[in-house]
């Protein structure tokens, strides 16, 4: 398979979001250190989870969440708590 890296920021620039000040994702980051597979990094279609090598910790941003909820099912340590954002907030698909 060819090495084709998607430019996720470019892709997300075509998606409308009504961003809430309140996060709808919480992560118990202390569990992530011992997690080896870290499936959230590759699973999230919006690449919202990244690993900060310098700080050795998980970074996530809920603002670009497409609300598929994949992360809640792939986390092997149940560290990700994902819920729907508050009413009227979050992704707003213009096509869908």
């Amino acid at each position: 398979m060819a090495d084709r890296k998607p430019d996720i920021d470019e892709k997300l620039s075509h998606v409308a979001f009504d961003i809430d000040a309140e996060a709808h994702i919480t992560v118990k980051k202390e569990r992530c250190g011992e997690c080896r597979p870290r499936p959230c990094l590759s699973a999230c279609p919006a690449e919202n989870y990244t690993w900060n090598e310098a700080k050795d910790e998980l970074l996530f941003n809920y603002e670009g969440c497409l609300e598929c909820g994949t992360c809640r099912f792939v986390c092997p340590l149940d560290a990700i708590e994902w819920s729907y954002p508050r009413g009227g907030f979050g992704v707003r698909y213009r096509y869908g």
Binding site: M1, A2, R4, K5, P6, I8, P37, P39, S42, A43, P45, E47, T70, F73, V74, P76
Partner: peptide, 18 residues
């Protein structure tokens, strides 16, 4: 399948480009 994304660490974003 979500199971495959979890266990085989399939990156669907990259597969989409393929």
């Amino acid at each position: 399948p979500v199971d495959a994304v979890k266990e085989a660490r399939v990156n669907l974003r990259e597969r989409f480009e393929d």
